[in-house]
Write a protein that binds this DNA or RNA. Structure first.
Lengths: 110, 110
DNA sequence: GAACTATATGCGGATAAACGAATGTTATTG
DNA sequence: CAATAACATTCGTTTATCCGCATATAGTTC
């Protein structure tokens, strides 16, 4: 694997990570992990304006993180890969441990 | 869990994800997964200028994703949590599957 | 094809991220 | 207290991201 190619792969890797790096997209992905949803359903479920949901879905779509199916005017989105949720869960656990450690430190100072 | 608190937690979750969302930081994290490294070692190993490495390490440090230990003037960085690599590996696998699917589609078109 | 519903996109502004280049800081050593 | 080595930070610029608001497109129904 030459350097340029490896850099491109790492770039793509980072783009998938960037797909997770927004609170609203995290909420959308967890909602989709419960099952397919159309845009309107996501809007009401997450209390987000429709253009905002659509744009975040576009980001996820471009990265292959969700899939779509159209039925009439309704577009139903599905989670593209369960491992996205597995990864999010791992990172959430890391975050919780970090919070716990910070709390310990704060305790030690007092 | 009230709405505001949940939003804050999701925000932190997204910040961890954002910590992964840069090619240079991904390279740094994988390097650290092989064992602790000091800044100079990371610079030579990854062929990155030192200020760049330091700034990325700062991002990771602020999010609790790496830990540091100072010995004289040398600061050694360690991976803060193995699950970061587990998550990166999962996402890398997702990316590879996406690439494979795209290749299939391209094939189907021809 | 007009009206309607569902979804997508464009625009503009605000905020944040990334980088190279230069400079600061900290700790060691003579 | 130089001089040096190892890191960290600041500055200025460029580029990207996020959002609200408005508007466009696609598909259905009459």
């Amino acid at each position: 694997m030459n350097k340029t190619l490896e850099a491109e792969v790492t770039q793509l890797h980072a783009e998938i990570c960037a797909g997770l790096a927004d609170p609203n997209r995290i909420l959308i992905l967890y909602a989709l992990s419960q099952g397919p949803r159309n845009v309107t359903e996501l809007c009401t479920e997450l209390e987000m304006p429709q253009p905002l949901v659509s744009r975040h879905l576009k980001v996820l779509r471009e990265r292959g993180m969700v899939t779509t199916e159209r039925r009439g005017t309704v577009v139903t989105y599905s989670l593209g890969d369960d491992r996205l949720i597995q990864a999010l869960d791992l990172l959430r656990a890391v975050m919780h441990d970090n919070l716990a450690k910070r709390a310990e430190l704060a305790q030690a100072i007092l």
